[in-house]
Nucleic acid binder design. Structure first.
Length: 422
DNA sequence: TAGAGACGCCAC
DNA sequence: AAACGTGGCGTCTCTA
């Protein structure tokens, strides 16, 4: 596969500084688990099932026949063979592609079946992956859900979570957020969610030394609106939401090792227009382009890039003869120092968290980590004490090893369930 | 009937 | 659709 793997040298560095001390912390988090309300999920499951059934009947009506909506093969044949629709593309194995982006495009061209399928998929996804699956993970003895964290599965140094994965609980849509309300605090307790604000863009501003970005963070500005303002010469005040949305996509694209092709797909615009956006961005923030070129150079010359703490992330195939693979490494080498530095920061915070809270006589059990977010369970009424302490530990996690040239900000809230705490 | 690959989609 | 990064996991489909 294209995917580069973690190799011994970087694993050793990670092990000594961040992995060994974190292991017992993660073991305690896994053992604590989190309370998941079975009846909330059961109620949601029934609601999702009912609504999905209505979409299924509607889809069969629109298609003029009964078929398995869960089969991309059958759906592709109906859309592009039976109905003869234009705009069909094939996946790399030659099957009709029926992903959400493509169906959205068809829906906009007036194909009602496409919208119905998207809606049906949304509900059956939430039901199958979350409301039906999560209760099967409730431990009979503890009555809580216990995930497992992996410290060495992710190339960049992030953690991963499995059995069940509690790092991909829905949040984007209203129905999805209902699932978060089922993650509840024990009686007499509250959940605290504390998340780093725009941590990867802040890391980028620091590493690439982008003055305009750093100033924006220092002044607490809306970073995507500021980017939009710079790119499109529109005042931040009264920024149109679609302009801001485009700038936000560019910001994320930069972090991921942008291409005009990828940005065009993301925004549903032409490749040339996307290319213009990127060019404008590089003109306004020339340090970004320098940063990217430096990572590409280093990964080719050294075979690794580094996080702000000096941890190496290896790319053994940086000089592959396969052009697609080289491009993949280039993009990943741009992303890895950013994602990897953010991962180092939260690991340092997690390692210090429990002793630091104990020293202040603050009772707070760390339960979950979701890349830039930590979830705690605290006694009701102690939030005024716990939240500032948690924030301080997270915000100062780079020190004394690294003093960032941008402020780090953490948002934290307490509530009875994850949705309201987030 | 179990396993694996393909496809699709959830999160950050 | 995906050459925009990192994962985990559900169903469908084919194969042994």
């Amino acid at each position: 596969m294209l995917k580069p793997r973690l190799v011994a040298e970087s694993a050793t560095t990670l092990y000594e500084t961040l992995e060994r001390p974190l292991a017992p912390v993660l073991a305690r988090m896994e053992a604590r688990g989190i309370s998941v309300d079975r009846s909330i999920l059961s109620h949601l499951s029934g609601d999702f099932a009912q609504r999905a059934a209505a979409f299924e009947a509607e889809a069969h009506e629109l298609a003029g026949e009964s078929f398995n909506l869960g089969s991309p093969k059958q759906l592709g044949e109906i859309l592009f063979e039976k109905m003869g629709l234009e705009g069909g593309t094939k996946t790399k194995t030659g099957a009709w592609a029926t992903g959400a982006g493509l169906l959205e495009g068809l829906a906009l061209k007036g194909v009602p079946l496409a919208r119905t399928i998207v809606d049906w998929r949304q509900l059956t996804k939430l039901k199958g992956t979350y409301t039906d699956a999560l209760p099967t993970y409730i431990n009979a003895r503890t009555r809580r859900v216990h995930t497992s964290y992996s410290q060495a599965s992710v190339l960049t140094g992030r953690l991963s979570s499995n059995d069940p994965n509690l790092q991909n609980i829905p949040v984007r849509t209203a129905d999805g957020r209902k699932i978060r309300t089922a993650f509840v605090a024990a009686p007499g307790k509250l959940l605290v969610s504390a998340d780093y604000s725009q941590i990867e863009l802040r890391v980028l501003a620091h590493i690439a030394d982008i003055g305009a970005l750093k100033t924006a963070f220092e002044e607490g500005l809306d970073i995507h609106a500021m980017t939009a303002s710079e790119m499109f010469n529109v005042p931040v005040k009264d920024m149109p939401s679609d302009i801001r949305r485009s700038a936000k996509a560019v910001n994320f694209g930069i972090i991921y090792g942008i291409s005009a092709f990828g940005l065009a797909n993301q925004l549903g615009i032409g490749r040339a227009e996307a290319g213009d956006y990127i060019k404008t961005y590089f003109d306004r923030f020339p340090g970004i382009k320098d940063y990217m070129e430096e990572q590409r150079r280093r990964v080719k010359a050294e075979g690794f890039v580094t996080t702000i703490f000096g941890r190496k992330i290896q790319f053994p195939n940086a000089n592959s003869k396969n052009p697609a693979e080289r491009s993949f490494v280039e993009r990943a080498s741009i992303n890895a120092p950013i994602q990897g530095s953010a991962a180092d920061i939260i690991r340092r915070a997690m390692i210090r968290m429990e002793p630091a809270l104990k020293a202040q006589n603050i009772e707070a059990d760390m339960l979950l980590q979701v890349h830039d977010e930590l979830i705690f369970e605290i006694p009701t009424g102690t939030e005024e004490l716990a939240i500032p302490a948690i924030k301080h530990i997270m915000e100062s996690a780079t020190e004394p090893a690294v003093r960032l040239s941008v402020p780090i900000a953490v948002d934290a809230h307490a509530a009875g369930n994850w949705d309201e705490a987030h």
